[in-house]
Design a binder for these strands. Structure first.
Lengths: 357, 357
DNA sequence: CTGAAAGCGCTAACAT
DNA sequence: ATGTTAGCGCTTTCAG
């Protein structure tokens, strides 16, 4: 009785088992544990499964096995091109290892992030949390019930990969100093951004040791739109060079400077962070601290999958696993947005009243 | 049985039922069908569930109900900012309706797209396929076993929303003609792109009716990198204005023109399509056919969810459902990349040998 | 190496 | 309105 209406109903493992004249458990093994069945059997089952157009039902599979073969990537803002590279890196690595990646946009909100983390717990085997807006303790708690790797967030007890932008802040200042700048400003990102405060501290320290002026403006949402206010605040600060939390903010500021007739780098030099999409074709092209973000994604995925592998045994052979924290270095990419400080630094630019749309 | 390291035991519906002193089915109903239980009962169950930290297991839920409450969004290239808006539109609408969105990158490959479509069939209730690289028949087949809505792909029998860029091609040409251009070129996207061929046909028709020259160059991969070859081909074509398949390609070309000392719009005018991220801050800012992509995402999601609702009954009250195909209009956004045609159109630019990195 | 049987957590008929 | 009882499709003991 091979009566089967044209691909109508789902073909299950039972159908395959019947067609192959074996038990369902054998089919299951042939498919998920090839080394537990004879080669002949494996071939036979595979052939039948293929012929019948059988696809395992992932829900049923994970209901019994406890593994979903999914990993989630949580990012604050999907429309920030900084995350392009991350996405690609994690996606590539996950797929190569047989995992499916779920991307979740947490909308720059700690509560959205927290609720996704809770909801996702049963749908994924682990999650990569990029630029978390959550508190340390929330992250530690989450990490205890679900394998987590953070990106750009270093917490005791939670595996992480951090892109070491702060370390290169010295290079930024050296670059600026050599161009004659003596007063710089930092346009900060969200207050909940760990990266932003780290960058600010590093910049501050670097400025102090070089005896130059350094002030903070902001905080700003890391978007193109917020770049306008950042630009205005930057002009108001009378600094001759501004380091922005990220490229998005910097590019937005570039547009505003242009609107207000402030020349970059003639009047003000601009430095971004990340070297994300757009940094090379904006006007002028942006000097920025380039981050190996795609690489970070690959590394984070590797760490996560490793953690998933030895769930239950979270101490490695040497007492502590070697992969606990990974630190990736950045480098300064000099483009046209930085130049010599204006001759008379404080008279060139005149702050004026403007409405910040 | 492997237990989650450090985590408490999973609390299931059984635990909640016991703690509340009711049957599991009552808990189930209280949670997913509030109108089928008394208000008092609902409150009680909710309270207990909350207190116990109960979260339903999505796999178990969908195994019995047949619904996953997931929808997938398939896009060819996640790093193309054109899809930003799409993502946001679909995400917002899906979440508002209680669905979780899976984003899948098909890497511009028809086979990857097809395999995802097959794999996803059991994990999602429906899928939105943007800019599909699949053939009509493949799409129709897929659509018969899984609710599908396409974006920028119009096929008989498959619900779709298409952004009607072609319709506005007349405006593009009028704009160009009024600037004195008499010879334009179209830099085509992938051969498998339905949008690209539609745009070309529309441009061709518009050019013919205005008695101006029109040629096609390409095809090109729609990336920043490919923009360089497109630019070179554009120069070689001796057209005074080039319409690019999309903004990514156009922006890439802008960079190449600048490298080769070709002035835009002095020597060549450039028109993009989509008005995606970057089109307003590249140099010069891009004249482009703006597409309401976020809106398209919302509409597509609505259509998909509607389709999912009445699975089985695919004919509406009036014979055909009103939502079958949706057409969204675009409009020309004029920026600085288009200008008057050069005085002596064919002697200004001299094609020369260059290595296309 | 293979088969039989017991669930995973939940929902959906049926009862009551 | 609520309780009882079957499974959903698969993996995993436990036997043989």
């Amino acid at each position: 009785m091979v009566e089967r209406a044209g691909g109508r109903d789902n073909v299950t493992i039972v159908d395959v088992a019947q067609a192959a004249g074996v038990a369902t458990s054998t089919v299951s093994r042939a498919l998920s544990k090839p080394e537990r069945v004879s080669e002949r059997m494996r071939q036979r089952v595979l052939a039948v499964a293929n012929e019948l157009g059988y696809y395992p039902n992932p829900q049923a599979r994970s209901l019994t096995s406890g593994r979903t073969h999914n990993v989630a990537l949580l990012i604050p803002d999907i429309t920030n091109p900084f995350f392009f590279g991350l996405f690609r890196g994690t996606q590539a690595q996950a797929r190569a290892r047989g995992y499916f990646q779920l991307v979740v946009n947490t909308e720059e909100s700690a509560s959205v992030e927290a609720s996704y983390l809770a909801e996702l717990a049963k749908s994924v085997d682990g999650v990569i949390v990029a630029a978390s807006r959550l508190s340390d303790s929330e992250l530690v708690t989450a990490s205890s019930s679900l394998p987590i790797v953070t990106i750009n967030r270093d917490i005791e007890g939670v595996p992480s990969v951090v892109i070491d932008t702060p370390r290169a802040m010295g290079n930024v200042l050296d670059h600026l100093v050599s161009l004659g700048h003596a007063s710089v400003a930092y346009a900060a990102g969200p207050v909940t951004s760990w990266s932003s405060s780290r960058r600010w501290k590093a910049l501050q320290a670097a400025a102090r040791s070089r005896h130059i002026n350094c002030q903070k403006i902001g905080p700003f949402t890391p978007t193109l739109q917020a770049g306008a206010s950042a630009a205005d605040a930057g002009i108001h600060s009378r600094a001759t060079a501004i380091v922005f939390f990220n490229d998005l903010l910097a590019i937005g500021a570039l547009q505003r400077f242009s609107e207000r007739g402030v020349s970059v780098p003639g009047d003000i030099s601009v430095v971004g962070c990340d070297d994300s999409f757009g940094a090379d074709f904006c006007n002028p092209p942006l000097t920025t601290l380039a981050a190996p973000i795609e690489h970070a994604g690959r590394v984070a995925t590797d760490m996560l999958l490793a953690t998933i592998q030895n769930r239950g045994a979270d101490i490695g052979p040497g007492g502590l696993p070697a992969w606990r924290h990974e630190r990736l270095t950045t480098f300064l990419t000099i483009r046209a947005s930085t130049g010599p400080a204006p001759a008379t630094s404080s008279s060139t630019i005149r702050p004026e009243k403007v409405s910040t749309a």
